[in-house]
């Protein structure tokens, strides 16, 4: 073999423009939200706005602790706009990786070369993980850089844990897309699977926050596993480590399913 991980290289090379775009997106979102914290959250203005909102809406949006720096960054950046941006990137890359390639006919040509199907699935997953890590790394950089000027007071270690939680959450959606592609060969099914994981996770979390009787549905929500422990405020404590371990475990299962699924199937019909 002339080089290591040729498929990862190819995938990353092809999405250079996308990588730059998504990175710029998370930086712009950080710049949009974080610097206004001192004038909004810390001054009590935001508290009065939040108090005037219906309690259900506040808990749906996760604005309960919005008056602290960690709570504000969680509610606006990691839990909302960052979550949306990274989920779209992850589902897009995950759906393109196998389902999209197969539908376009490109996968057929790749598999006609000197690669194995497990290698194709594993390198696709690795390329997805790498690209998301780059965007999350940029997001973490923005968070750390703006922490002081924006008076957020988030310890660097907690910022790392919080961003990593978002990373795992988006990776899970992306891998759901990738694996659906490996199992079905359909790009549409891939997008649906990844979007379902993200949307249902968010909805279950919001629903569980609204009513005591429905709080059990939160236990089904990866969004809840990642963010309910408030990693920006508490770091790895408060159950964050356990929640992230569960997401990581699910990611592992999805990768295995992708390898097995792609290896057994007719490609290109």
């Amino acid at each position: 073999m002339a080089s290591t991980l040729p498929l990862v290289r190819h995938a990353v090379q092809r999405s250079r423009v996308g990588l730059v775009g998504w990175s710029a997106g998370v930086v712009a979102a950080s710049l949009l939200y974080l610097p206004i914290y001192p004038s909004m959250g810390a001054s009590g203005q935001l508290q009065s706005v939040v108090s005037s909102l219906p309690a259900e809406l506040v808990s749906t949006l996760g604005f309960d602790s919005i008056t602290t720096g960690a709570g504000y960054a969680q509610a606006t950046l990691l839990g909302l706009i960052g979550f949306v941006l990274l989920t779209i990137a992850a589902v897009g890359w995950g759906a393109a990786a196998i389902g999209g390639e197969e539908e376009s006919g490109a996968l057929e040509l790749t598999l006609a070369h000197g690669v194995t199907r497990p290698q194709v699935a594993l390198e696709a997953a690795l390329a997805l993980g790498l690209r998301l890590a780059v965007v999350c790394g940029v997001l973490l950089g923005a968070l750390l850089a703006l922490d002081g000027p924006s008076e957020l007071g988030i310890p660097a270690a907690h910022a790392v844990v919080g961003t990593f939680a978002l990373y795992l959450l988006s990776l899970l959606s992306g891998l759901a897309s990738l694996t659906a592609g490996a199992l079905t060969g359909s790009r549409t099914a891939s997008i649906a699977a990844g979007a379902a994981v993200a949307v249902l996770g968010y909805a279950f979390n919001a629903l569980g926050n609204q009513a005591e009787a429905a709080s059990w549905v939160k236990d089904l929500s990866p969004y809840d596993w990642a963010f309910s422990p408030a990693p920006l405020a508490n770091g790895l404590g408060n159950g964050a480590a356990g929640g992230m371990a569960v997401i990581l475990g699910l990611c592992g299962i999805l990768v295995v399913a992708a390898v097995v699924g792609l290896s057994r199937r007719d490609i290109g019909g």
Partner: peptide, 9 residues
Amino acid sequence: EHFGRISGP
């Protein structure tokens, strides 16, 4: 270049 990396020398 890419196809060269995944096929014969």
